[in-house]
């Protein structure tokens, strides 16, 4: 699809907007509908659109597979870390109100950080699954090609 000018221009226009919308859904989740799950999926869809237009190699140049792996684990670990931080500060697991002096802002900080962890994990896992499927397709094509040569 590299050669299709209209698709490329529309995608170039849309991808930043989708990413911006994902960040809005992520960090505005306490005030409007949204949160980490939705934001992660929307962010991943921007990357998938990029891959559909520019190819998987360009997509993996932006974020290598290894980075996706590390980030998806980091998101879940961030969530657990925030939960354990509450324990360390004398509360219960995932009790955010002890994180800061003011329980209200502590709750907000906890929710934002936890949702960030959710968003990172969801986005990278979706990207990872998509990458795996696309790579498998490429492998099969290569095999077919080889069979054709034989």
């Amino acid at each position: 699809m590299r050669s299709n000018g209209i698709l490329r221009i529309v995608a170039r226009f849309l991808i930043p907007l989708i990413m911006l919308f994902a960040l809005y859904v992520q960090f505005h989740g306490e005030y409007s509908p949204g949160g980490g799950f939705q934001a992660g999926v929307i962010f991943a869809s921007a990357w998938i659109l990029f891959v559909l237009i520019y190819g998987l190699e360009a997509g993996l140049a932006v974020i290598p597979e290894r980075t996706m792996f590390v980030l998806s684990a980091c998101g879940a670990l961030l969530y657990a870390f925030i939960g354990l931080l509450g324990v360390a500060l004398g509360g219960r697991f995932l009790d955010f109100s002890v994180l800061l002096d003011d329980p209200q802002s502590a709750q907000q900080a906890g929710i934002i950080l936890v949702e960030l962890g959710v968003g990172i994990t969801v986005a990278t896992v979706v990207m990872l699954i998509f990458t795996m499927f696309v790579k498998r397709r490429a492998e099969l094509d290569r095999d077919d090609h080889r069979e054709g040569l034989d």
Binding site: E30, G75, Y79, G83, Q108, G110, I111
Partner: peptide
């Protein structure tokens, strides 16, 4: 919490362990 979106509050704080499980 001082935030208006109850869904976010329930999801991330009141029922945080469920959400952790989902992640």
């Amino acid at each position: 919490m001082g935030i208006p979106n109850m869904v976010a509050a329930v999801l991330a704080s009141y029922r945080s362990i469920d959400t952790f499980g989902e992640v």
